[in-house]
């Protein structure tokens, strides 16, 4: 009786795991199968024509890369500063706990909230209109907590004896920060940024009011009134009225490209995350 119950319990758990993985892998498979026919060189080198029914997604790809690069550059100094504040400058201060709580809570804020905030501050108050810079800054805000948390964990993993040895050699605190703590933690910054960028690449809500339009933009040459085309917004608009089969194939193709971009960003972060997992699960 107990043996039978043991078996049933294990089977139910196994079935749940299979079902969950099947659903998730299944949807990736659906996108890959439907998107594959659209893949060819001209899909990546031409601009869209006939409201997405013809041509390629060159400028959408370029626009997404511009936004991601901007977000990465804007996010990095703040992530380093916040991580150092948490790990070093607030080492034994009660405010450190509040900083952590703020980071975790900010990490859970919905991306649409950042989008509307960017709309008020950059688009309206700064008078930029839709601009690549506004979109990049909004994405930077939304990924900042993720990057900071990963970096904090990596700095926390630097062995205490390194810091003690450096202090014993008479290094000042700022020298210890750059020669020991950060020197050991650049990988964490990269991993965190890749994870943050993987999420930012697929975000539509933060950029739809601030940075992106559906057609008619190429490379931005100014800050104000310089929107870009992006992959997620392209899918978002076409998905809402996609009765033309020609649009359909391009649409799935765009989704496949976006998925590929997101997966390669998170796969690039994988090796170092795997190492952390291994270390923490011995």
């Amino acid at each position: 009786m107990r043996k039978a119950r043991d078996l049933i319990f294990g089977t139910i758990a196994a079935v749940c795991a299979m079902a969950a993985l099947a659903v998730l892998c299944g949807l990736v498979f659906v996108i890959a199968r439907r998107g594959w026919p659209a893949m060819n060189v001209s899909f990546f080198t031409e601009q869209i024509r006939l409201v997405g029914a013809s041509g390629g997604i060159l400028w959408n790809l370029v626009g997404t890369v511009i936004l991601l690069a901007t977000a990465f550059l804007a996010c990095t100094p703040f992530a380093i500063a916040l991580a150092l504040l948490e790990r070093v400058w607030l080492r034994s201060h009660p405010a450190r706990r509040w900083l952590r709580i703020a980071l975790y809570t900010a990490n859970g804020l919905p991306s649409i909230v950042f989008g509307i905030f960017g709309f008020i501050v950059f688009v309206q108050w700064c008078g930029w209109g839709k601009s690549w810079l506004a979109g990049g800054l909004v994405l930077a805000m939304s990924m900042l907590p993720t990057v900071t948390i990963v970096l904090i964990e990596r700095i926390a993993a630097v062995p205490a004896r390194y810091v003690e040895a450096a202090a014993g050699l008479g290094l000042r605190e700022s020298q210890i920060v750059w020669a020991v703590l950060m020197r050991q933690s650049w990988g964490g910054l990269i991993t965190g940024s890749l994870l943050g960028l993987a999420r930012a690449a697929g975000e539509t809500a933060p950029i739809m009011f601030t940075a992106t339009i559906f057609a008619g933009a190429t490379f931005p040459r100014a800050i104000a009134e310089s929107p870009v085309l992006t992959l997620p917004y392209h899918i978002f608009i076409l998905a809402q009225d996609s009765f033309d089969p020609a649009v359909g194939s391009k649409l799935w193709g765009t989704a496949l490209v976006l998925l590929g971009l997101v997966f390669s960003l998170s796969l690039a972060a994988l090796p170092s995350r795997l190492r952390i997992h291994e270390e923490s699960n011995v």
Binding site: L24, L27, V28, I31, A198, R199, A201, G202, E203, T204, A205, P232, I235, F236, A239, A255, L258, L259, V262, F263, S266
Partner: peptide, 8 residues
């Protein structure tokens, strides 16, 4: 990490 617009 699958983007929400793809789910949509």
């Amino acid at each position: 990490g699958v983007p929400s617009v793809v789910y949509g």
